[in-house]
Each structure stands twice: as structure tokens, then as C-alpha cells.
Simulated scan of single mutants.
Amino acid sequence: MKKVITLSTFLFLASFFASASDGLIKYESQYAVKETADRFENILKSKGLTLFARVNHQKNAQDVNLDLRATEVIIFGNPKVGTPLMQCTQDVAIDLPQKVMVSEDENKKVWLTYNNPNYLMQRHDIQGCDEVISKISDVLTKLSNAAVAM
């Protein structure tokens, strides 16, 4: 059976991989920043992950009379997954717990963004933890897809 990739699918995949090349993975959301962040938070809690903090950078900027487009960071994790990664290379702790940023760009598009686990693997020269990195990648992909799904 021959598989056909439509132009729109190709362009989506090309833009996705292009945005992942800088160490970040981005998903466009059709929801507002707060709603996307709320959806992500609710999904991660329903999956038994720990929410450590949620930072509203826009509100913090407003509190000191500065302007910033809507930007929130959700800090979360699971010690059962993060600890084995730190056991491979303790320096990765600087990038843990996991974080996602939900923000609005200058064109009013909303993005859910996180560090590519493969980038972290390279950054910290993590050896022998391919299974853990794969698990983290899968979880982040599933959480992100669910948060931005229509």
C-alpha cells in the first residue's frame, strides 16, 4: 500500500521539525494562553503527575508596571521518571522538573513549548538512559497534543 502525504501534512511536519531544531518543541494552540495552560494542568494532574508551580509572567510584569504578552510557565514532573534520569547524569537536574511555556506571539498565535528531551540528552551528554528519554518524550508529546487538541 502506497502512503500519500498531503502538502498540508508535509508543511505541518516541516514547521514542527524546524521549530524543534533549536532545542524546543512547539505546538500551536487554538485556545487562549490561560485556557491552554488550564487544559495542560488538568491533564497532567489527571495523569498523576505533580504540579510544582504555575508562573504567570504577564501578571508579574503588570505588577511592576511593565507590559508582556500572555506568558505562563507550568513546572511539573514525576520523581519516578526524573530521578533515574538524574542518576544517569546529575547535571540534568538543572533542567528538572519539566517545564512547559504557554505564550502568545506577536501575531496573536498561542504556542505550547517545552525543551526537547533529545536536546537535553545532548546538552548533558546523557549516556545509557535512552529508555527514560523516550518515556519522557512520549509523555510530553501526549500531554501537549491533548492540551491543544480541538
Score class of each variant (00 low, 15 high):
1 M>Y: 04
2 K>T: 10
3 K>A: 06
7 L>Q: 12
7 L>V: 08
10 F>S: 11
11 L>P: 03
12 F>M: 11
12 F>N: 11
13 L>G: 15
13 L>Q: 10
14 A>G: 01
14 A>W: 02
15 S>Q: 10
17 F>L: 14
18 A>F: 08
19 S>Q: 13
22 D>Y: 06
25 I>Q: 12
30 Q>W: 04
32 A>D: 09
36 T>G: 02
39 R>S: 15
41 E>H: 07
42 N>G: 12
43 I>R: 01
45 K>C: 01
48 G>D: 02
48 G>R: 00
49 L>Y: 14
51 L>T: 12
52 F>Q: 03
56 N>Y: 01
56 N>I: 03
62 Q>Y: 06
63 D>P: 00
65 N>M: 09
65 N>W: 00
66 L>A: 13
67 D>W: 02
71 T>L: 10
72 E>D: 09
72 E>K: 03
75 I>A: 12
78 N>T: 07
79 P>R: 04
80 K>L: 10
83 T>W: 08
84 P>R: 06
84 P>V: 02
84 P>C: 08
86 M>T: 04
86 M>F: 03
87 Q>S: 08
87 Q>A: 10
88 C>P: 07
90 Q>K: 11
91 D>W: 00
97 P>W: 03
98 Q>E: 11
99 K>Q: 13
101 M>T: 13
104 E>M: 13
109 K>S: 13
110 V>N: 07
111 W>D: 11
113 T>Q: 14
114 Y>M: 12
115 N>Y: 07
115 N>P: 01
116 N>M: 14
121 M>Y: 01
122 Q>R: 14
124 H>G: 04
125 D>S: 10
126 I>T: 08
126 I>E: 05
127 Q>M: 06
128 G>F: 00
128 G>V: 01
130 D>W: 01
132 V>Y: 04
133 I>S: 06
